[in-house]
Amino acid sequence: MKDFQPVFAGIDVGASRTKAVILDCAQQIIGRAVVKSGTDFEAASHQCLTLALLMAGCTAEQIAKAMTTGYGRKNVAISQESKTEISCHARGCYYYFPQTITIIDIGGQDNKIIKLDESGKRLSFKMNRKCAAGTGAFLEEMSTRLDIPLENLDGLARQSMSMVELGSFCTVFSATEVLEKIRQGKKVPDIVKGLFFSVIKRVMEMDSLSEHVVMTGGVVAHNSYLVKMTEEMIGRRILVPDFPQLTGAIGAALYAQTIMNYEL
């Protein structure tokens, strides 16, 4: 049914994962994919887009416009146009929640807090400093140290009965602290919950929050307990879009569509 129908592609070439989204003219997501970015952004973006097109039942020729975003946004040949992940996450989140929102995006390499007004205009944004604290990289490092698969962290944190608090900003110092807690006989689920709490604290230090808070990013997508913990911390419900890891790619696809409409 999608033959010869124009579609719009958004490709978010992140430091850890590459994400692709295909939107139809009605702004519906008809294809999506996530692959590891690895060391060849070009290959990863090509593979990711191919998978998304396959899911959409479309061909590359149907792409009326593609837009790239993310860390490797200027390193791939798929598109001549790119926008920063700040703009694309904002656009993608506003698509789901068209109101005044504060977006917390926890990615593999960086965190962002983006504030939008009721019309979707960006009021401000903050990115984490040059430090892995509070990012997916922190959890990846800790999962290696604890010899626990990354995907098991969420389940373990949920089992915690008595969270262990970690004090350090620094990933390396936190690892030392974790070893110390293991020596003290602390339970692994309690330590893992402490790691989640550390991520949340680092993010909360970046900026204040408005009433409606949206959480996105790969870390959020794979660790829903982290959202629950954040809700408990701020005392209100947090909005999470259908595909929290894809909001950047969705935003990029929406920009692609806007540009085409403008050009037409």
Binding site: Y71, T84, I86, S87, K121, M127
Partner: peptide
């Protein structure tokens, strides 16, 4: 050692995009 070029670039580009939307 205290400068992250990619972080700076993304921040600056995002700030300019913000000004464009204003």
């Amino acid at each position: 050692r205290l400068v992250s070029d990619e972080q700076t670039k993304t921040n600056v580009e995002a700030f300019i995009e913000q000004l464009e939307e204003k």
